[in-house]
Amino acid sequence: MADRRFRFAVMAAWARDGAGWAAQARRVEELGYTTLLTPDTSGTAMPAASLAAAAGATTTLRVGTFVLSAATRPPNTIAWEAASMAFATGDRFELGIGAGRPGGEDDAAVFGVPYGSGAERLARVEQVLDAVANPPEGLFAGTGRPPRVLVAASRRRMLELAARRAGTVAFGVPPMTDDERLAGYVEIVRTAAGDRFDDLELCTQVHVVGDEVPEWLSRQMDVDTAAMAKSNAIAKLSGTPREMADTLTRRRDELGVSYVSVSSAFMEEFAPVVELLAGR
């Protein structure tokens, strides 16, 4: 297995205002996280605007979409946005792309575009990857260096596409997924990637840090609070910073997962783990 060094991201969706958003980005950088990620929903700020502001308020922090919906934009529009973001951020932008999310039909309705079937949306993701890698003639190409691409996936066909085409594969799996089930997803990626598996970065998300699961978060994840608290789900880490670091190290050594994002609600609690592992 490749020598995969840890890096960590914060998933943030909102702030009171622009000044608060910039302050949050600076704090993410101060705590040692590599990347600030933001979602793509009709109920949150446009990712390009938020991420450009975050990059402008920081010096080394990378910024990325997690994830941009291929269902609500033409492929060339996404390639244009990605090149523009790479240009505006000094090549600190990473394009996270996916085929949609639960509730994605509502976003499509707001924007007045067809959501499409699962097969149509998967095909759209592949078209996006083509357009980003090789922008059509006449389209602004930014710095000329395509951004790193993350593909979020949970179903076999999307996992296989991510394995073949992405730089980072993010496992957008159910919150109660444990290590055993995660291993099955990783095996799908390994088989589809073939010789390029060792070059892939694998990513998982931590939604809860500690033993208590906030009620608002359990509603958001649609899980039972008590069940999540007692579970061995990969979406939850508890114990001392050293114990959490050991869990992530074991997961990295056994499954190859080296990129971990954490909810902004827990970025302070998780910072000691980042200090222990970042870049190692």
Rank of each mutant, 00 (worst) to 15 (best):
M267Y: 03
T59V: 14
Q127M: 05
L248D: 09
T34C: 12
R26F: 02
E243W: 04
A19S: 14
S117H: 03
D17V: 09
G144P: 04
A9P: 12
G20A: 13
A235F: 15
V128I: 01
A123M: 09
L161I: 01
G256S: 02
E137H: 06
R73P: 03
S238I: 00
A88G: 04
E160L: 02
G112I: 00
P135L: 10
A86Y: 03
A133M: 10
G118Y: 07
S231H: 02
V223Q: 08
F197R: 04
S263N: 15
P47L: 01
L277W: 00
L248M: 03
Y259M: 09
A152C: 12
P214H: 06
V189I: 07
L61R: 06
W21H: 07
Y115H: 15
V132T: 08
V151E: 01
M46Q: 14
D130V: 10
T247R: 13
P214S: 12
R26W: 03
A19L: 14
T247Y: 08
T58V: 10
L95H: 02
V206E: 05
V213C: 08
R7Y: 10
V10A: 04
Q220A: 12
A57K: 05
Y259Q: 09
D3A: 14
S264F: 10
E268C: 08
L248H: 04
E215T: 13
T191H: 08
A82L: 05
P74N: 08
A278D: 08
E243R: 07
W21S: 02
I78V: 15
G142C: 05
V169G: 02
A2H: 12
E126L: 08
T58C: 13
L202G: 03
R242Y: 07
M228I: 05
E275P: 01
E81D: 15
W80C: 01
A227H: 05
A25K: 10
P102D: 00
V206I: 15
V189F: 04
M244T: 08
A52P: 04
A108N: 06
P135A: 04
G116I: 09
L61P: 00
M267I: 07
E269R: 15
F111K: 12
A45W: 11
R101G: 03
D3G: 05
V128Q: 04
G194T: 14
D130H: 06
M158R: 02
